[in-house]
Amino acid sequence: MPSNAHSLIGLNPDACTSCMICVRECPVWCIDLASHTHEVTEEGARRPKVVHVLDEFTIDFGACMYCGICVDVCPFDALAWSNETDQSAHSASGLVHGIDQLVKWFPASGS
């Protein structure tokens, strides 16, 4: 398979800020994201700051049109093309993948 083949999309949950841009730009609405906010008080800071904590991130590859808009719009490079081959499933729901799987598909740095 060519290295630039549109195959699967991986997620780096540590880089994701739950900004929702990918979810809202997806033409087929195949990304779901759930997060909660959490107050963090840093030493020396006057006010606690609110950070978003990523709880769930799923891509439904049954609907995904592999357009790459989510990869392009992510301001934090938390989404990237994977070189893994497409994964068939025995049910439509089997094509929905969450953080545990998506993180495995995120290409290692430098690749």
Partner: peptide
């Protein structure tokens, strides 16, 4: 799905 938001806590 874009309607969901962590800011649903209104903060």
């Amino acid at each position: 799905p874009g309607d969901a938001d962590a800011s649903d806590d209104a903060k």
